[in-house]
């Protein structure tokens, strides 16, 4: 049984087709990379998976349950978590409170109380190395720290599927290494499926992916094991810009 299954999913905005008949399968614990240039429909795809948008056509199936038109707040408790391209911390709340919110309303949300959530937050904070920022408002963190905090918040939700939107966008190379190591670490330690979405082919990150999906103009261009995908001539074409026609 796949963890997540997209069947022929299509999403339009006015006349524009943002996501075009995409099929996708993710197994529990799998690490998958989604690659595509800006505007290729990656973020829209994420928004369909976590319920921000409902697709016009197709189905979204999570653990055999049809969640196509389930509102986002009902999907999180099923085990779907995400991070944002531009981090969206709850700025006025402290780092600890931010992460506790994840625990409180995530997969085990119903079974943990506030104190337990704060405990989970403290443990998660240690793991991501934000201990000295624990009681600071999240709004004053640096961009990298915000990314880390957002991942911690998602992890505190104890998700089965973690969608990471451009975890490395706009980062300094040193920070990128740190982040890649960190993601590798959680990918091996946690038994969660991770879908990492990147604009450019990042070998560092995609190297650990089991398979890679390349999106182009909203449609799936390539869906293959990592090694094959990276050498696929179509992918090279998209990224070297030979294919200039729109």
């Amino acid at each position: 049984m796949p963890l997540l299954k997209l069947e022929n999913v299509t999403k339009r905005f006015g006349g524009l087709i943002a996501v075009n008949r995409v099929n996708l399968e993710i197994k529990a614990g799998q690490f998958i990379g989604i690659v595509g240039p800006n505007g290729s429909g990656k973020t829209t795809l994420f928004n369909i998976v976590n319920g921000v948008f409902f697709p016009e056509e197709g189905k979204v199936i999570f653990e055999d349950q049809n969640i196509t038109i389930l509102p986002p707040y009902k999907r999180a408790p099923l085990g779907i978590a995400r991070t944002f391209q531009i981090p969206r911390p709850f700025c006025g709340a402290t780092v600890r409170e931010n992460i506790a919110v994840g625990a409180m309303f995530g997969t085990h949300g119903r079974y943990v109380n506030v104190d337990e959530s704060l405990e989970i937050a403290d443990n998660t904070i240690k793991r991501v190395g934000l201990r000295k920022h624990r009681d600071k408002p999240a709004g004053i963190l640096t961009p990298v720290e915000k990314k880390l905090m957002e991942i911690a918040r998602a992890l505190a939700m104890k998700p089965k599927l973690l969608l990471m939107d451009e975890a490395m966008a706009g980062m300094h190379p040193n920070d990128i290494d740190r982040m890649v190591d960190f993601i590798k670490k959680i990918a091996t330690e946690e038994k969660i499926a991770i879908v990492a979405m990147v604009e450019h082919i990042m070998r560092a990150l995609l190297g650990m992916a089991e398979k890679i999906i390349v999106l182009h103009h909203g449609a799936k261009l390539v869906d293959a094991p990592t090694k094959e995908a990276l050498e696929d001539p179509k992918v090279v074409e998209v990224y070297l810009g030979k294919n200039t026609k729109k």
């Binding site: 921000v52 986002p72 707040y73 911390p89 994840g102 309303f105 949300g109 918040r153 939700m157």
Partner: peptide
């Protein structure tokens, strides 16, 4: 209050 859309995605009704 801080970010309604992010809150929804976090599982908050």
């Amino acid at each position: 209050r801080e970010d309604e859309d992010a809150a929804k995605v976090m599982g908050i009704n």
